[in-house]
Every structure is written in structure tokens, then in C-alpha cells.
Nucleic acid binder design. Structure first.
Lengths: 253, 253
DNA sequence: CGTGTGACTTGATCCGGATCAATGCGGGCA
DNA sequence: TGCCCGCATTGATCCGGATCAAGTCACACG
């Protein structure tokens, strides 16, 4: 099938921006929101949580939020935009570790080494909440809900790390990838069937340990099978059920 | 090269048992030891840490420490023996997630889902320290060193999860695997050049996303290149430097 | 406006590792 | 003792996806 010009693209989906608050309120879709709610919005501790957060951005596409080797001082929640994390080995080969959507948190893997083990690069214009980690763990000692939330976020990321571990076919990987993204958008309140891929085919391929050509072929095939509609980076899932069958081996139950 | 009978095996390496204590003292090589030391062996809090730990075992080879779906109540530190964690998808295909040596901790990935997302299976006779997690996090709230230690262990496991992520050749994977094991033995005070592989070739292959035959071939080739000596499951690293060159892309800097 | 550049797609070919197959060895068990 | 079964090794063949190659299109820039 022919490459379609962007002129014929799908209608724009609603822009995924996770910021329903101002400087003194937290994002309703943020990964920390449940910790905040559990602690109670009106308690004095919350004021402290407010103190240790700092809004940073905008970062433009391609700009670094942090770099490999930077000393670890804070974790970042994505307020708007998308981020990839990646390692670059000494031959200069890139290794994409993950993509992070509004409401998700980056930097947790830097706690142990005390330096960031990877780069974080904005894929489009992105804004963040920056949480000082020393302040955060001090707070966690006093508010069990905050501590528990940190444990849960860390543990959750452990689970998702093993998602792409198995030796699976290109079809399985791509299907699981699309559904994983869809689910993560849906859980933050965005459309779970139509969204924008803010990363290039090359980034997807790198993340899935495939060649960019293979990703392109699989997407084309999925389209010809009426499983998806895709034009450029605008994606619609036409048959999530069938996709789930294909990707089941990589997906949570 | 021919398969060698076990009769001609290498001399036995020292048995890796991480238990230098009795019922009232903690293992010096245990993952928690630094938390204990930081908190001070003589402080009253330590008595509480003692209370929430329970020695369990022995488990024989093939027995489960926990199973997928079991409610999460505790994490386990390996005192002696070796464990693999694995997921079994609904087609019955096994997926080995990791191997755990004396001093290491299993169960951290169950915090978020609140149920174990995988099985833990003993590879040989194994003993554990069982830490009640609710008690542990309560203690963590009062002793910052314990909290920090939990954060660090979780974050550390995040890092190691991405070790086998990349698309790398069989040689790279096997070399990195051997060196990773060696390093983990060394850091616990065991020999970092000669040790026993408690897992089968099939388990190694599964973990590395290779076929068992491929692992066998690579090991044979490494032997013929004088990089290792291996007879059955007894292994000696003859040229760690060269192995490190081969596996560098997968190894921490 | 033309030109260059980078992202994407599609086709042709190649190769590393999977799969199939055969064999040796050792341990458990009757 | 003899049999069976699982692990390990080695050889032969096959295939999915990587790589090489060519072309389209969008967009930035002089």
C-alpha cells in the first residue's frame, strides 16, 4: 500500500494534556494523585507535598530532561507531552527503554545508582512536575500513603519492564505495544482507541527490538486486515479484540 | 566436542551459602545487612526487624516458594540455594524472569499488583528469610535507613531488568550472563571465577531468549576458545577480560 | 521556487538462531 | 541388572526478521 500524505490525515484526537490544575493544585490524572487523595487534600502534609514539587518546562522535541550520569536529585511526572528514555552504549547505539505519557513518572531507576542510568528525551513539547527525591522520601517517612505510593510505582515499573522481555514475533510485539499505549491513555482519561503516536517508527522499532522496516510492514498489514487505521502517526484501533488475541502472550492475563 | 561425564568434573567450588548467623543474627551477606548496620545492630528497632523475619525452608529442587496469584504478604531473601522466577502464559509456555542467589531478594514485583505475578521455584535445596511486608513498611516509616534500602532494592532491580532487553547476539548474551552471575557471586563474597550453575541449559536459554541448543553451542565454542572451562554445570572463567569485551554492550559501562 | 533532508513505505536478499533429528550420558527405579 | 527418561551436545535444515536498496512524501531552508 502506498504511503499517504499527511494532507489526508485523520481528524485530530483530543490533545492528551494531563493538567487540570494550576500552580497550587495537582493534576487529577497524575500518578501521585491517589497518594494526595489518600493523604487528604486539606491536610497540612499536603502543603509540604506542594512545596517539594516544581513545575518545569517546556522542553522541545529532542531536548533532554536529564542525561546519563547526571546526579539523581528528583523524579519527574509528565504533565504534558511524551518522553522516551534511552541508553546509548559506547558504540553510540541507542536503546529505547520506554515511553512515558502524561501522568507517568520517570527517574525511578536512578534511585539505586544515585545517577541517572539513561537519558530522558522529549518527543514533543513537554512539561513536568519535578519532585525533589530527598524531600519526597522524608515526606514518605511521615505519610504512609506517600511511602506506599512510591513502593507501588517502583513495583509497577518492575512488572512492565518484563513486558517486552520474551521472544515473541513482530506481530505479537506490535499488537501488544499498541494495546499497552491504548490502555495507558485510557486509564488517564484519554481515548483508548484513537491517539497520536508521538514517537517515530524507528523509536518504536528500537523499543520493540525490531527493525523500523519490520514495524512499518506489520502496521501496513494490520491496516490491510482492518485491525487499525493509521495515517502517519495518527492511529485508530478498529479491532482491539483481535489485536488482543494477537498480542495476548505479552499482555497481562 | 564430546559431552564429558560428571565423573571427570572440576573440583567442587566452595558451597555458596549465605548464612553466617544463627536464628538471632542476620546473614552478613544478606541484602538487608547494610540496612541493619545503618540502623545499628544494638538499637531497639533491630529487635523489631528480628521479629518480622522468619526463617523458612528447606525447599527442594522444583518446589515453589510462591506461585502466580498468591496474595502478596512477604518478600523473601535467599539464605542458601538458588531460585528462578518465571511466568507461565496460558499456552503453558514458560518464561524465566530471573535467577536469585544467596543474599538476594525475591517478591518485590508483587507489591503493586498485591499478588505474585510469577512463580518462584527452587533450583536446588534452598532456605529463606521471610519478611512480612506490612511489618516491613511500617518499620520503614520509622527507620529511614530501612525505607531507603527498600527504595534502593526496587530501583536496582529496575536496572537489572533492562539487562537482557536489547537485541543482542547469542554470544553477547551468554558472555554477559556468565559475567553477571560471576559479579553477583563475587559481591557476596564467593568466587567470582569458579562456580556452579544451578540452572539447566534450558533455563539459561529461556532466560536469555535463546534455544537450549544455541546456549550449548556457544558454551562449547567459548570453551574451545579457552574463554571458559565447563564440565556439566561446573564453570570456570578463564578469560573474564575477553568475555567482558564480548558482552560489553549488555553490561554496566 | 528548487533543493536537501529525514521519516516512512515497499521490495529483494541474506543470515543468525530456531527447529528438527540423532546420540551419549547419568540417575532413578523396578 | 536393565530400562527409561531427562539433560546435554552436535549436526542438518529452515525461516523470521535484519539488512540492503529504491522510491515517495513532507517540510525546512536558501
Amino acid at each position: 500500500m502506498q504511503y499517504k500524505p499527511m494532507a489526508g490525515r485523520l481528524p485530530e484526537p483530543p490533545s492528551p494534556i494531563a493538567d487540570d490544575g494550576d500552580e497550587t493544585r495537582f493534576c487529577g490524572t497524575c500518578a501521585f494523585s491517589s497518594a494526595c487523595i489518600a493523604a487528604g487534600y486539606d491536610k497540612p502534609e499536603l502543603a509540604e507535598l506542594q512545596c517539594l514539587v516544581e513545575h518545569v518546562g517546556p522542553f522541545r522535541a529532542g531536548e533532554h530532561i536529564f542525561r546519563t550520569g547526571d546526579p539523581f536529585r528528583a523524579i519527574f511526572a509528565v504533565r504534558a507531552g511524551t518522553v522516551k528514555t534511552r541508553m546509548v552504549d559506547k558504540d553510540g547505539r541507542e536503546q529505547v527503554l520506554g515511553f512515558y505519557l502524561p501522568g507517568e513518572v520517570i527517574g525511578l531507576n536512578a534511585i539505586y545508582p544515585e545517577h541517572f542510568p539513561c537519558d530522558a528525551v522529549a518527543l514533543d513539547t513537554a512539561y513536568f512536575c519535578r519532585f525533589s527525591f530527598p524531600a519526597m522520601s522524608a515526606l514518605a517517612s511521615r505519610i504512609p500513603a506517600v511511602q506506599q505510593h512510591l513502593f507501588r510505582m517502583l513495583s509497577k515499573e518492575l512488572g512492565s519492564a518484563s513486558l517486552l522481555a520474551g521472544d515473541h514475533s513482530a506481530d505479537e510485539r506490535v499488537a501488544a505495544f499498541l494495546l499497552d499505549l491504548a490502555g495507558r491513555y485510557a486509564v488517564r482519561g484519554f481515548s483508548g482507541t484513537r491517539f497520536h503516536l508521538s514517537m517515530s517508527r524507528g523509536d518504536i522499532a528500537n523499543y520493540l527490538r525490531l527493525a523500523a522496516e519490520t514495524v512499518s510492514r506489520v502496521l501496513s498489514r494490520f491496516r490491510s486486515q482492518q485491525l487499525i487505521e493509521i495515517e502517519g502517526r495518527e492511529l485508530e484501533l478498529l479491532n482491539p479484540k483481535k489485536l488482543r488475541e494477537i498480542g495476548q502472550a505479552l499482555l497481562p492475563e
